[in-house]
Amino acid sequence: MLADQPLLDLGWIGAHAGDIALRTLQHLGLGAMALAVGFAVAFALAMMAAGRPRLLAPLITGAGVVYTIPSLALFAALVPFTGLSLLTAEIPLVLYTQLVLIRGISAGFAAAPPEVLEAADGLGYTRRQRFLAVELPIAIPLIVAAVRLASVSTIGLVMVVTLIGNNFGGLGLYIKEGIASFFPTKVYVGAALSVSLALASDFALARLERRLAPWAESHRDVQPGASAALAGLDPIGA
């Protein structure tokens, strides 16, 4: 049905560059907000559960259950309560980040080898100094890896959100409009920019990790874009 149109109408793209940029920024903004709130929540939960496996296990199970709810169903279920507001968009986005983030941040907090903690205690770090100057820095590679994964899947999910509500803008709108008006250019522009955003954020976070944890051996093996490829295997956008 889209076949009678040119696949890519460059003229349209040129004429709507401003609009495209705006929707890309909206898309990024929705994703970044969800990621920031999701990170804060997951970090607090992981801190609370640090060294308490009996608290951590149910947390991760809970986040896992949430993760299995189809995103469209979750959005639809929220509409009666929160309408087509920003909250309806952000609540599922934040919830979906929790499994990956809580697991990654907790793994980070547990990453310092026992002999390193013993050395820190033995040399006279206070508990607080030990957490801030030893445990936290050692956790960074695993935390950043989790954030990379969460950022890629969140940007994909924002597509779904913006398919539902017109109020948020974002690139999903192009998909919807493109299909409705038999105009494939919009579909391709929306999809290509969403993928580019995911790749760019993954790349930027990989760079950040290299700066924050220059000592880590592992980041040399993980190419930027690797978590994008991984998240692509995730069924969560469905």
Partner: peptide
């Protein structure tokens, strides 16, 4: 904490801080 800072400690499994350079480890 004062007690421990006044006692040098070489632990059996070395336990260097992986995120610090050699110099930063020594200067702990």
């Amino acid at each position: 904490v004062d007690l421990r800072r006044s006692i040098g400690y070489v632990i059996q499994h070395v336990g260097l801080f992986p995120h610090l350079t050699v110099a930063e480890n020594v200067a702990t």
